[in-house]
Amino acid sequence: MPIIQTEALTRRFRLRTKGFRSREITAIDDLTISIEAGESVGYIGANGAGKSTTIKMLAGILVPSSGTALTCGLQPVSQRRQLARRLGVVFGQRSQLWWDLPLAESFRILAAIHDLSRDRERERTAELVENMELEEFLATPVRQLSLGQRMRGEVAVALLHSPELLVLDEPTIGLDVVSKQRLREFLLAERAAHGTTLLLTTHDMGDVSRLCERILLVDQGRLAYDGSLAGLSRTVAMRRVLVVDLAEPTPDLHDLPHAEHLGSEADGLRQRLAFDPEVTTAAALLAAVSEQAAVRDLSVEEPDVEDVVRRVYVSRGR
């Protein structure tokens, strides 16, 4: 049986506009998806596409306007409490930790909330603390932790009761590169060890390409793509961006093979060039740039989710 199954899931909101009038918007429109246990799924879409609304309905926080959702085979709202024992959720923007208490207290309280035996609590806490490298700040009140430390804590406590399904809503938002990488590695290890199903929403294609085997792309509440990342790259060219820092101010670079100039900063000291890795390589593009200007530094950016989404619309003729 699928671990997540929705059938024509729909959610409408009434927005109060000026005065007493209100207008209805459809945040999620006729969403039918099915996710098997053990899968690792990226749920992507632009801001306001309905990602968080979907997650809230799957977790039992929000009632669907119509349609059905089954999470771990349970009705999310009416069987919320049974579901809570089998589901872990991490919100990047809101904390499950007790803000003014030391991090260790959050582990203790949540172990009690999920009624873990003392042995199980000790064992699982030790495992998570070690894998997530939390030891040094276990005694620190949560409000004094850095964002990266806090997010590691958030993910660890969400996994304390060994849920079969872990849902992450923008888990890497605001994190620095090192923290992101560490979090991703941990999630991969956790999945390998326990077969945990992952569903994550993100703005970061890096998360998707490293963590997810399958992608669901939602646009204005509707499912716009369901398949592998490779499949998505075939649908729309997955462009990457080469950022070059030049030795001196330079006019916008043009006439580069298979590349598009996206923009310049600081009188052309920094320029951004998009290219399609299926057609050319960063090295080839860099060689072409070097013929026109002296390159001081460079970086390659992952494709941006918003960019991918935009191009999916274009390819579907919208």
Binding site: A59, G60, I61, R80, R81, L87, F91, Q93, R94, Q96
Partner: peptide
Amino acid sequence: RAGTFDVFCLRPQP
């Protein structure tokens, strides 16, 4: 406002 109540919804108690 802070979303603490949503977090309550994720726990197996009333």
